[in-house]
Design a protein around this nucleic acid. Structure first.
Lengths: 183, 183
DNA sequence: AAGCGCATGTAATTTGTTACATGATTAT
DNA sequence: ATAATCATGTAACAAATTACATGCGCTT
């Protein structure tokens, strides 16, 4: 599974506490891997116990106190192994496509509004990504790290673009049928 | 929670037994919603118990015997309600994008080969979809059902196209620096 | 009758989600 | 001091994955 590896990647980029990780998984990191704070705390516990990470001993480690983690060599090795291993793409599972297919048998009531709402959400997300691209990835990208991170962001941008295009088609298809099917 | 609704949709399109459903979720239906036979049998049990579907009483219903299910009015109503309700897009979670991000911190060993493998898989999938499109959706699409189902297939086609384009970019980015090792 | 594949399930484990609990810090 | 908020967790549950179990029917 990928959650522990997502956490290892995030911690390698920057050692963090549980809440800081949660924030990062809600923002930039969440563009390709999302996680809730409950998942994160549980997984941090497992990773610490297995020796992949450790809490920085600086502050007083009590409940309600901040606790920063860093990756240990074992954790980095594990991540490197996972990142280079073969893994098949996961099976498709998209609720919106399913709902359109369901609408084909039970009717399209409410569907156009829902499609429009999703379209607006994806347009907003695309704007957000493009803002990040302008800010963080100016034309002269030099380091390998930058190139790879930019590539991941491009994935997000092009995925949002896909959805916007598809939703636009979908709205034409669904809306265009109340009158005559003018194509 | 979409699995029960996926099953209701599939059964409305055509009443089936558990194994037939499994087959359909491995083929065309699986293009937008995948499920294993264990999930399907468990869910069929729940749906039958809740009165959303029923087993056709035709054949002898014993273990190892085929058992066909059909959707009852309650199930169809439930599906219609679900299909028209509002649901936010689910949070992004893509292992391959994560692996590229991980490669940015632990190195790109093995990555190009993996990207090429995925590229080949997506190219094959795209060909498959395009074959289905040619076969099942000739230019003169008439019924609303056909238009909606074609729309769902277009979603699959354009998603595969997205992956192929992104993976091609990714290979240019990663291969363009190969051999240099550390940075 | 032995073996094989088909069809239907059970069980165990892991992952993800939702709701709640508790200590510490800061503002009023 | 009280309340609000931050930070870290626990508990309960739902969903998905993996592995295993059982009965039937057909072939050899």
């Amino acid at each position: 599974m990928s959650l522990p590896h997502a956490i290892l990647t995030a911690l390698l980029e920057k050692p963090s506490s549980g809440l800081e990780l949660t924030r990062r998984f809600d923002k930039s990191f969440g563009f390709f891997w999302s996680a809730t704070h409950q998942q994160i705390y549980r997984e941090l516990g497992k990773l610490e116990q297995s020796g992949a990470i450790r809490a920085l001993p600086s502050e007083t480690p009590a409940r309600g106190q901040k606790k920063e983690y860093e990756v240990l060599p074992a954790g980095q090795a594990e991540l490197a192994a996972w990142a280079s291993a073969g893994q098949d793409p996961r099976a498709m599972r998209d609720p919106l496509l399913l709902r359109v297919r369901a609408a084909a048998v039970v009717g399209t009531a409410g569907l156009p509004a829902e499609l429009r709402r999703h379209l607006a959400l994806h347009e907003r997300q695309l704007e957000l990504y493009e803002g990040i691209e302008r800010r963080d990835f100016p034309p002269e990208r030099d380091s390998e790290q930058d190139r790879l991170r930019h590539l991941v962001l491009r994935g997000g941008i092009e995925l949002e673009t896909f959805w916007i295009r598809w939703l636009t088609q979908a709205l034409e298809t669904v809306d265009g049928e109340s009158g005559t099917g003018a194509e």
